[in-house]
Every structure is written in structure tokens, then in C-alpha cells.
């Protein structure tokens, strides 16, 4: 459903510290599958995720979402697509401090103008399904790493996106929690979602739920399976 052709991304283009993080990527991500980007640190995994997830635009090359070329769209449209199509689980989870977990979950839905009671019902249901129902009203910064991640996942799912994007989802978790996360990925896949993530972790790359592993090195694809 997502196709990249000859995508390159430069940082600080035209300046002395110009750096090409991606040097020509051709890639297709299939709907309903779980794809993992792996590679050494600095190889461009996160950068690739930001391009696929409409958080950034490629310097050259094209990104297509289904049949629509989205690489040249203005910010407004990208936001729209991002909101309706992608849900993000960030590496640092990036929860908003000082507000409750359930409010964090609802934040992406606010601009859509949904009724607040329905919204809160949906947020609670999501949190229950992720076993963090009892934590709904605790402050976001009091949550443990695993809980925070599940709150972040609930937040990614609140707008019911087709694609869930997770950057290094297991980097901050012990192997027990990592397995739990992969369990969640399995249910996501079972419910028809496309999952994209990056990982160094062999535990992640070698699990059954993962359909494709894309290996990167120095901004180029080295291997796909």
C-alpha cells in the first residue's frame, strides 16, 4: 500500500554539514503485514519511518500511498493523511506530562471534533484492551516504561488508523515486556492493521508475526526478506 521509489533524504542541504541519510530507497510496504526496518545505528531507519508516516517529505524521489503521490503535498494535506492513516508510537513514547493517561490517549482525536463522551468511552475501551484500564487516571509521568508504551499504543490507535508505526518499540523494555509488545502487534495484525517498526532487536526480527525485514546500512537497502 505504500511505495517508495528512489527516495533520498538530505539534512542541512546546501550547507557544509550536508548529510544524506537516505541514498535511494525503493521499497513497497504491503497492507496488513508487519514490516521491520533493521540496521546499525545511524543507518537511516528512523528517517525512513518519518517519510513513510508523512512526518517529513523526501528531498527527492516519490512516496505513494495507495495510488496517491504524497511526496509533494503541502503540510496541511500531509497532516490530514497522517491523522487518518497513521498512528505513531515514538521511541521515547512522548506522552504529554502533567495530564492523565486517558487524556493523552484522546489528544489526537481533539481536532476531529468528536463527541467527548464517546471519545472517552473509546479511550477507556482501548486502554482496557491493553490492560492499562486501571491506570487511566494516573498522571502520565508516573507510569512505568511498559505502561507508558501501552498508553502510547492506545494513543496511536484512538483515530483507528490503518497503519501503526513504532520506532524502536522494544528498546526500553526487558525481554518479558518485549514479548508482551509483540503480543499486541499480533492482535493489531489480526485486526487488519499494517504495522511498521524499526528495531535492532533479534528477538523482534525473528518472531513469527513479522512478515518482512528490511535491512539498511548507510542509507541504503542491503537486504529484504
Amino acid at each position: 500500500m505504500i511505495h517508495l521509489s528512489d527516495v533520498r533524504k538530505a539534512f542541512n542541504q546546501g550547507k557544509p554539514n550536508e548529510f544524506w541519510a537516505l541514498k535511494g530507497i525503493d521499497l513497497s510496504v504491503r497492507a496488513g503485514k508487519v514490516t521491520v526496518f533493521r540496521g546499525p545505528s545511524g543507518s537511516g531507519k528512523t528517517t525512513l519511518l518519518t517519510l513513510v508516516g508523512c512526518l517529513a517529505r523526501p528531498t527527492t524521489g516519490r512516496v505513494r500511498l495507495r495510488d496517491r503521490d504524497i511526496s509533494g503535498l503541502p503540510e496541511r494535506f500531509l497532516t490530514d493523511i497522517r491523522r487518518s492513516t497513521f498512528g505513531f508510537v515514538f521511541q521515547q513514547f512522548n506522552l504529554l506530562k502533567g495530564i492523565s493517561a486517558v487524556e493523552n490517549v484522546m489528544v489526537p482525536a481533539y481536532p476531529l471534533g468528536r463527541c467527548r463522551t464517546e471519545l472517552s468511552a473509546r479511550a477507556h475501551a482501548l486502554m482496557d484492551s491493553l490492560d492499562i484500564g486501571p491506570k487511566a487516571h494516573s498522571n502520565a509521568e508516573w507510569l512505568s516504561g511498559g505502561e507508558a508504551q501501552r498508553v502510547a499504543i492506545a494513543r496511536a490507535l484512538i483515530n483507528d488508523p490503518e497503519v501503526v508505526i513504532a520506532d524502536e518499540p522494544t528498546a526500553n523494555l526487558d525481554s518479558e515486556r518485549s514479548k508482551q509488545f509483540l503480543g499486541i502487534v499480533e492482535t493489531l495484525k489480526a485486526s487488519g492493521k499494517t504495522v511498521l517498526m524499526t528495531s535492532h532487536d533479534p528477538l523482534v526480527c525473528d518472531t513469527e508475526v513479522v512478515d518482512h525485514v528490511v535491512s539498511l546500512r548507510d542509507g541504503q537497502l542491503v537486504d529484504t526478506r
Binding site: L55, E75, R82, R83, N94, K97, V107, N159
Partner: peptide
């Protein structure tokens, strides 16, 4: 820096600049 980070988060989860 905290506010900046928050704005980044809001935008990343789908808020428009206008929002």
C-alpha cells in the same frame, strides 16, 4: 523546551498548525 516538545508531539499525532 518542554512546550516546544509538546507542540512537536501534537503535530506528530495529527494536529494541524492551525489547531
Amino acid at each position: 523546551a518542554e512546550e516546544r516538545r509538546e507542540i512537536g508531539i501534537l503535530k506528530a499525532v495529527g494536529w494541524e498548525t492551525g489547531d
